[in-house]
C-alpha cells in the first residue's frame, strides 16, 4: 500500500538553525501517527514543514506516492492543519474563520461533523476570537483543520488547554475518524494517549528521530501504560542528558 506520508532524510531550518535533521517517517493511510519529544526537539517544525508552513531544506517528502519536497503549496492543500491558536485573528468571529476555510460556514460545520458538539463550536460561532479563552481558541483551531474536509490532518498538541471532558471526547472522536479512514499526525506529550491511540510514533530529540515506536510496541504499551510511560520517560531523559 502506498504510504500517506513517506519522509526520507528530511531537514528543516528555522532562523538559520537546523531544527529537524535527517528525519525518516512513514505513515500508512487511515492511521494515527504520534510524535513525542522534549520541548524544542523539532516536533512543531516537522509538522509545520509537512503542512507546507515551512520549507524543507533537503530530503524527500512523498505524499500519497507523489514527491512534494519542493511543493509547499501542494502540501498545504493536501493536509488540514490547525494553526497556532494564538495566531488566530482577534478581530474576526469564529464563524468567519470557518467560513473562510470552507467557503461558507454551513459547509464547514458539515465537514467538522460530530466534532462540532465535542468542541462546542456551535456556541462559539458568534464570538470574537479576541474574546475567546485559550481553550476556546484551541477548539477553533482544531475545528478549522477539519473545516474543508481534508482526508489527512496534522495537529500540534491538540489537547492543550482543553478541559477533561473536551479532551476525552476529542480523543475518542479522533480515534473514531481514524477508524473511518482519516490519516492523522499529531504531536503529543501525553504518553498513555500515544500508547492507546496511535498506530505508530516517533520520539524526537535534538531535531533527530531518537526512537521509532511501531504498532507492536504501542500495543504492548497500551496493555501496560504505566510501564510504557516509565520506559519512555527514561528514554527521553537519557536523550536529554
Amino acid at each position: 500500500m502506498t504510504p500517506a506520508v513517506d519522509l526520507r532524510g528530511a531537514s528543516v531550518l528555522r532562523a538559520g538553525n537546523v531544527a529537524v535533521d535527517n528525519v525518516d517517517l512513514m505513515v500508512a493511510p487511515g492511521t494515527w501517527c504520534g510524535i513525542i519529544g522534549a520541548n524544542g526537539s523539532g516536533k512543531t517544525s516537522l509538522l509545520r514543514a509537512l503542512a507546507g508552513r515551512l520549507p524543507f531544506q533537503k530530503g524527500s517528502c512523498r505524499i500519497d506516492g507523489e514527491e512534494r519536497i519542493s511543493d509547499r503549496a501542494g502540501r498545504a492543500r493536501h493536509f488540514g492543519f490547525a494553526p497556532p491558536p494564538e495566531m488566530l485573528p482577534d478581530a474576526l468571529r469564529v464563524r468567519d474563520i470557518l467560513a473562510l476555510v470552507a467557503g461558507d460556514v454551513d459547509c464547514a460545520l458539515q465537514s467538522v461533523g460530530p466534532l462540532c458538539d465535542v468542541l462546542g463550536i456551535s456556541d462559539l460561532l458568534s464570538r470574537w476570537i479576541g474574546d475567546c479563552s485559550a481553550g476556546m481558541r484551541q477548539r477553533v483551531a482544531v475545528a478549522s483543520a477539519f473545516a474543508d474536509g481534508k482526508p489527512a490532518i496534522i495537529l500540534d498538541e491538540p489537547f492543550n488547554w482543553l478541559d477533561p471532558v473536551a479532551l476525552f471526547d476529542l480523543r475518542e472522536e479522533l480515534r473514531r475518524r481514524v477508524t473511518q479512514g482519516l490519516t492523522l499526525i499529531t504531536a503529543l506529550h501525553d504518553l498513555p494517549s500515544i500508547a492507546t491511540m496511535c498506530h505508530g510514533a516517533i520520539m524526537m530529540a535534538d531535531g533527530e528521530v531518537a526512537m521509532a515506536l511501531d504498532s507492536d510496541t504501542l500495543r504492548a504499551g497500551a496493555a501496560d501504560t504505566k510501564r510504557f510511560e516509565r520506559h519512555t520517560i527514561e528514554a527521553l531523559r537519557s536523550k536529554r542528558s
Binding site: R53, R72, A76, R77, I97
Partner: peptide
C-alpha cells in the same frame, strides 16, 4: 498567511 494563517494554501499560490 503562508506561515501562520488558516488559508495558507492560497498564500502559497
Amino acid at each position: 498567511h503562508a506561515s501562520d494563517g488558516v488559508i495558507a494554501s492560497d498564500a502559497l499560490n
